[in-house]
Nucleic acid binder design. Structure first.
Lengths: 201, 201
DNA sequence: CTTATTAGCTTAACGCTGTTAATTTGACCT
DNA sequence: AGGTCAAATTAACAGCGTTAAGCTAATAAG
């Protein structure tokens, strides 16, 4: 007895090995430039073995992405937990989002920017970590409205607008590094502050 | 006599044929899903013929994108020409930007989202049509400040912030089409209006 | 203890891809 | 008419994601 459990653990550990190798390569070289064969080579298995653990290459990226989203989600969660002024917290959450992207640009690219068409996304958006992260931001916006720090805007629309703006500056800074940007930090804050101010009473 | 010119014209016409076929397929099915062989098939030439007219597939898409973006630039140009209230014009320019991105998602992707690693960057930024479009936006922002419709913000920073926000909503709508967005049109306007209002006196 | 079954992994292969090299075609000039 | 040269083609390379079939070693059954 227990051999079944050991087998189970071994299976799970290989799954992790594949996931780690894939993330490493995706982050370092980009999804498009990484082949299943190279991932397999990295962990000394045959390419087809991956298909015993993941549906296809897209699924592999999806699983990697989920892990990344969850990091961001838990960061936002802790910021929300120690909230005093919801507007300040909202700014922190947005700033954390941008900083996260700039700190791990390749990871951000893989997860947020160069997103190839992934499975049935309706299912994905219902319970994914990305949705969770967004929900936390929306929760914070709702709190801003509830405490009358924001005027009575549509919370969902406002949250999506805020997400769009932070994604915009993050994505542009990453993908256009040679563009003659003005001071990047000021620019990020300008985007965040301008949007947030726009929702105040 | 003149046969050289005719040859020249024929060469140019085939180049056009390739460009048109490529744009058609790229727009309809997406860059990744179109092969050189399919483009060639569409115009009844062998695949390798394309390489006599374009460096590679990326070059082909770049040329197609430039043509498309020049449309956006001239649209912005005409909006700027018939400007009365610069703030209204600015809104129109931003809206045209987003609408353009949504109309030609694949072109927008390659030029602003999935940036290919470009060797001669400086040259690109100087004279690409995408850059020209941005310059026109900045010109409009400058006019807003000059006529005191905007408070005395840093024109460059404000322009970049505005660009970031419209890029954000455009990119997200393109790359996350299955996300449960609130009304897209309202959302786009919300982003634009919120940012612009934020720069008013 | 031997035999049958099954899980885990690999090898081989298919039909694609972008791209290069070598080769053929065909129109022009002398 | 024969040579020249550019244009287009065929053949090929190396790689891709993925599937089907085969092998191997551990487990279950008799």
């Amino acid at each position: 007895m227990g051999s079944k459990q050991r087998r189970e653990r071994e299976k799970e550990s290989l799954r992790r090995e594949i996931l780690d190798a894939a993330r490493d390569l995706f982050v370092k070289e980009g999804y498009e430039n990484v082949s299943m064969r190279r991932i397999a080579e990295k962990i000394d298995y045959s390419p087809t073995t991956i298909y015993l653990y993941f549906e296809d290459k897209g699924d592999l990226l999806f699983q990697v992405s989920e892990e990344t989203f969850s990091k961001l989600a838990s960061k936002s969660e802790s910021l929300l937990a120690e909230m005093i002024d919801p507007v300040v917290t909202l700014k922190k959450i947005e700033r954390a989002y941008v900083d996260f992207g700039l700190k791990y640009p390749n990871h951000y690219k893989v997860t947020f920017i160069n997103r190839p068409e992934l499975r049935d996304m309706s299912k994905y958006y219902e319970k994914s970590m990305g949705q969770k992260a967004f929900n936390l931001l929306q929760q914070c916006v709702a709190e801003c409205v509830r405490r009358k720090k924001f005027r009575r805007v549509d919370v969902e629309a406002a949250s999506q607008a805020l997400w769009a703006s932070v994604h915009g500056i993050t994505a542009l800074l990453i993908t256009h590094p040679k563009f003659p940007w003005t001071d990047k930090n000021k620019l990020i804050d300008l985007v965040i502050d301008t949007m947030i101010d726009g929702f105040k009473p």
